[in-house]
């Protein structure tokens, strides 16, 4: 058990709460749930698109966190550890092939096939302020495109761009190198951009 008076490099708003829980105030675990249930539920929805699977994932995550919280190492941020547990729960829940089959994305598939495909005009969806374009329809296109991404790319783009983790944090959560995260993230973003382009060009 770490010394409660000892400050660690990752002391954040959760650290004190976790120390109290680990010191016997288990009733305070509800506070952790209140802090993170909405984030985790939305993470689950992005990863599974099935509210029932998302709920199962959130429940499995919190039950595992409760079980293993005593072993939490204070040198990492709790939020990063929580998402590591959640990612593992997500992978167990995954419905292989229902949405995106696992496949590699290559940069080449996002390059214009020939000169005439190169756009020199900014499309409307990319030139307008976010609050004018992010309506229900566009959000739906992004949500579906996320689900169409092969899982290993989806995990990276959801953690980085939707949940807001840094490259280094995402690498720690997924046990990958930062270089690997950058490669996957770029391909995932290009995939999403293609989905948006296709949707608007088809109009």
């Amino acid at each position: 058990m770490p010394n409660p008076s000892e400050k660690t490099k990752n002391d954040d708003k959760d650290t004190e709460l976790i120390r109290s829980i680990n010191d016997g105030r288990q009733d305070l675990f509800y506070e952790l749930v209140n802090r993170y249930e909405k984030s985790l539920y939305n993470f689950g929805l992005r990863m599974c698109d099935n509210p029932s699977d998302a709920e199962d994932m959130v429940q499995d995550t919190f039950l595992n966190v409760f079980k293993y919280l005593e072993g939490f190492r204070y040198e990492t941020k709790f939020r990063n550890w929580l998402y590591r547990v959640a990612t593992s729960a997500c992978l167990k829940k995954k419905r292989r092939s229902k949405y995106a089959p696992d496949r590699e994305l290559s940069l080449d598939e996002f390059l214009p096939a020939n000169e005439s495909d190169v756009s020199v005009e900014l499309p409307r969806w990319a030139s307008q302020p976010l609050d004018q374009v992010l309506d229900g329809e566009l959000a739906g296109v992004i949500r579906q495109a996320l689900l169409d991404l092969p899982e290993k790319y989806r995990l990276v783009v959801v953690l980085r761009d939707v949940e807001g983790f840094t490259t280094q944090e995402t690498a720690e959560i997924l046990d990958l190198t930062p270089t690997n995260i950058k490669v996957r993230l770029h391909r995932a973003r290009l995939f999403l951009r293609e989905a948006l382009k296709s949707y608007y060009e088809a109009d």
């Binding site: 949500r143 996320l146 948006l196």
Partner: peptide, 22 residues
């Protein structure tokens, strides 16, 4: 165009609406 469309894609992901937990 390539940069701006990619930037907008990232911005859209960052601003996706979060649903309430039932």
């Amino acid at each position: 165009v390539c940069l701006e469309t990619l930037k907008q894609t990232v911005a859209l992901c960052r601003n996706l609406e979060r649903r309430q937990v039932p």
